[in-house]
Design a protein around this nucleic acid. Structure first.
Lengths: 266, 266
DNA sequence: AGCACAATTCGGTATTGCCGAACACATATC
DNA sequence: GATATGTGTTCGGCAATACCGAATTGTGCT
């Protein structure tokens, strides 16, 4: 009553905000949580949380363990997430090409895009799937340290780059991560010149990654593909071959995207 | 004021119910929708729908097109869905084995489980990914017509089977679909005897699928794997080989699941 | 310009969801 | 076996909250 609401944005629905916040907390904890622990985590009364959870449960957005009564993320999120990803043309276009690349090179192949100032991994194909690479589909990483990110950053104007840096800074994930604007600008210039980007242990020590842009029909770059592996497997002759095949793959994907453009919504 | 609430279940939060209903509608339409069309679809005033959508948008559960202002499912669903699937042990255990199977046989390999009386597809590996098979990851199909479903149905007691039938009936997807209880019981007996199930064009004309159960440590069956392909490629000698390899794969997955059991939550 | 149709804002009303306390139930603990 | 802590769940009354209709702004089309 005294003040207007803090955020200038009008009319958000409290109970929906709270319900979604509960989902965020459950996602963050990444496992089962008791109603009570959720309740004290967010600081709302148990009964309030209970009502919200019951509603989410009815829609299968959360799942309640039959024995323990604990709550976790529900199956509907899996279904909706998959449905959403199926609606993206880029996956249709990129998947067969990535599959071939993964087999021929025997290394991990990834596809990413920029979302909200970060790299979002859309697809990952691993040859043996035993190797553990930090990035997973649906995960996010800063742009300035990943190969995919550098490719997309390299497309930006100086102003956009500056706003990226001022937004999240240049946090270091390893000692090799680029952390100054000057070095990043130099790196991006090289990316533009070479036509590909490299992450040399800047996310995870010992892991190297090369990435190239995917051009769409309008001449802009919204996606990038990459190949990553242990540094010993990613050098010399072999590296050159990888880059060559990667660039060819990107061209194929770009082409496939173009031919997929003839779709309209119903 | 007049009546109590229709459903006996207590205290569901209306605005959360409405917000989630909007997501369901957006998922069903599978594309962009205008606020107005959403509004009249659900029958609530525009301003009400607007508030709900604004809240969902803030959390990236819906996305609003910059140009058209239309709404669609948001990226957070993709992220949460993938995070959820990563928490399932079965995928870790099954994926490498499925990958090998897919390569060796050159056919589509799928993994499914029962959820809410239907088969839910958890993973799908296609050799060329050009072939279009009806089922997709995150999709659902009736149990009585799919190979995966028959495997899981075959584990049920007569009472459970009856309740399955009375719940959803035995709808026919093709002219070959089993639609009578007697035939289904006979079919399931054969499944138990043979150790595998077959779908012979019962979902899609011309498509055959063989499936086997995955046993967990406790001796129960919660998942099943299958191989599907065009009927000409799935007969005679080759079929026998497929079944043999499939059964071996299922054993490996079962074993891997067991060894993964030594995990506790933090 | 003017129209038609989009999304968005506004403010008053009473419906709605919030809250604290009491409940039921299970599992340890003594 | 009774006690103590831990769950999730229910209840009812108060008032804050979300709903609604109408008015507003914005955009594309004729």
């Amino acid at each position: 009553m005294e003040k207007k609401r803090k955020t200038g944005r009008p009319s958000r629905i409290q109970s929906v905000e709270r319900a979604l916040t509960l989902l965020e907390v459950l996602a963050q904890e990444d496992g089962e949580m008791t109603l009570t622990s959720l309740s004290q985590k967010v600081g709302w009364p148990k009964s309030t949380v209970h009502g919200l959870l019951a509603t989410l449960r009815d829609f299968h957005y959360v799942d309640q363990s039959a024995e323990t009564g604990c709550y976790k993320l529900g199956i509907r999120l899996f279904e909706l997430g998959n449905q959403l990803s199926r609606s993206w043309d880029i996956l249709d276009a990129a998947h067969p090409v990535m599959l071939r690349l993964c087999r021929e090179l025997g290394e991990t192949v990834q596809l990413g895009t920029e979302d909200d100032g970060e790299i979002l991994y859309l697809e990952k194909l691993a040859p043996n799937s035993v190797v553990s690479i930090l990035s997973e589909v649906g995960n996010r990483l800063p742009m300035h340290c990943s190969g995919l990110g550098k490719v997309l950053l390299a497309q930006k104007s100086p102003g956009e780059l500056k706003s990226y840096i001022s937004r999240g800074g240049l946090p270091a994930l390893t000692k090799r991560t680029i952390t100054t604007q000057a070095k990043l600008e130099k790196e991006l210039a090289r990316v533009r010149e070479q036509g590909y980007a490299m992450d040399d242990g800047e996310i995870t020590e010992g892991l190297r990654c090369v990435a190239v842009p995917i051009w769409d029909g309008t001449g802009s770059v919204r996606y990038a593909v990459s190949v990553s592996g242990q540094i010993p497997n990613m050098g010399g002759e072999r590296l050159e071959r990888i880059i060559r095949e990667l660039q060819q793959a990107a061209e194929e994907i770009s082409y496939a995207m173009g031919s997929r453009r003839k779709r309209m919504q119903t």
